[in-house]
Amino acid sequence: MGSSSGQPEFDYLFKVLLIGDSGVGKSSLLLSFTSNTFDDLSPTIGVDFKVKYLTIGEKKLKLAIWDTAGQERFRTLTSSYYRGAQGIIMVYDVTRRETFTNLSDIWAKEIDLYSTNQDCIKMLVGNKVDKESERAVSKKEGIDFARVYGCLFLECSAKTRVNVEQCFEELVLKILETPSLTAEGSSGGKKNIFKQNPAHTSNASSSYCCSS
């Protein structure tokens, strides 16, 4: 545990958000990434959250990954979680076309509306490639979408774990390449704006510093 000595256990903390339609496998993707398992999961109500530590190069990273509910009804609730995210992963299900078309109809707009981070890295992820025979969205369409919206792109399967780690790693690498984002996420980063008393600031080495 990080102590009050002010020496945190990581160099950077990044906030990553998972968004996309109901049932595309956001929670499964997260579970697959953080604990190498695949399980029958209940629909997410509101938000869920997981942490993953990564070491890239010599940098120790703490990823705070927020998993949001996909259903329309919860959108007003989840919007506040876009704040201060350095990375946003848009997930769709390659076997259900509407989850892909909703990305441009709904989710990309949500990002524009709620994301406070101009430089925030976006990533498009097509999940469930293990069901190749049921595929309804081609890889090329995914690539084209990513080009138009300026985001990274990967296809993966939370079930077989194909490309799961790569999803998050590519995103993180890109965040690390972006100076404005690394400045925010760095543990010695901004301590301003935060309405916290000084005794706590050394511990609050997170992006929440800039969220209030």
């Binding site: 109500i45 509101g46 609730l77 506040s80 309405k195 916290q196 706590h200 929440y208 969220s211």
Partner: peptide, 21 residues
């Protein structure tokens, strides 16, 4: 409140599905 959780959104699931989870 200081942590930004003064809206108690984090407790929404308990109310919504009546503690099923």
């Amino acid at each position: 409140d200081k942590l930004g959780g003064g809206d108690y959104l984090c407790a929404i699931r308990m109310l919504m599905v009546q503690f099923r989870r």
